[in-house]
């Protein structure tokens, strides 16, 4: 059904292109006659001799496809590269500009700031929540649909695990979890680790450890 619609659309486009070219020519004719009335009235032969080439040129100019230029756009197909893709993988053994600096971030843990935690929560919500859940208990929406449940971040094993463990899992994956190296930048991995730590704290801390005001607010919740 949609294919029919598509071909109908293509036909429609072709017809519209033809009409738009016609109207262009008509408009041009009008301007032309206004500009040189004498030429238009003197003799039909001469009129056509001048006008016809101009008319043809106008039509040819209309063929210029400014909206679809012969250029390589991201993620489109390419007739130039042998694998047919515009986006090419970097040649083997090369290092992209800035890549070393990006990866160098992984060596040392950044200082824990509110901004880092905020960034971590945002990135966690984007990349981790579908499986690990908002609370980090491993009950995300995708897990509820049958994906194997990941471990709860509040497990003692994971509370005691070093930061490097989480960094490694994000980078290389773990069990059925795929690598997120291409999706989560090195700096963001630290932010996510910081958020995982805050989730662990939130789920294992004693209620009495909270400031009086926060505790009352928490207990007031249903």
């Amino acid at each position: 059904m949609t294919t029919d619609r598509l071909s109908a659309t293509a036909l429609g486009h072709a017809a519209l292109k033809a009409t738009s070219k016609c109207s262009r020519t008509l408009r041009f004719l009008g301007i032309f006659r206004l500009a040189c009335p004498s030429l238009a009235t003197r003799s039909a032969g001469r009129w056509f001799g001048v006008f016809l080439p101009v008319c043809v040129l106008t039509l040819v100019a209309g063929c210029d496809q400014m909206a679809r230029q012969p250029r390589a756009d991201a993620q489109e197909a390419s007739r130039f590269f042998p694998d047919g893709k515009v986006n090419q993988a970097p040649p083997v053994g090369t290092v992209a500009r800035g890549e070393l600096a990006r990866d160098a971030v992984l060596a040392e843990r950044p200082p824990l700031t509110a901004a880092l935690l905020e960034r971590g929560e945002e990135r966690y919500r984007i990349n981790c929540v579908p499986c690990h859940g908002l609370a980090g208990d491993g009950l995300g929406t995708v897990v509820q649909r049958g994906f194997p449940r990941p471990p709860d971040f509040a497990e003692p094993r994971l509370v005691q695990a070093p930061d490097r463990h989480f960094l490694k899992v994000i980078e290389h994956g773990y069990g059925v979890m795929y690598s997120y190296a291409a999706r989560v930048k090195p700096a963001d991995r630290w932010a996510i680790v910081a958020h995982i730590r805050s989730l662990q704290l939130a789920r294992t801390a004693d209620v009495k450890a909270l400031p009086e005001e926060d505790r009352r607010a928490l207990e007031a919740r249903p």
Binding site: P130, V142, R145, G146, F147, P148, V176, M177, Y178, S179
Partner: peptide, 10 residues
């Protein structure tokens, strides 16, 4: 790869 993050299991 992104699609298969879930659809390798589901």
């Amino acid at each position: 790869h992104t699609c298969m993050s879930c659809h390798s299991q589901l």
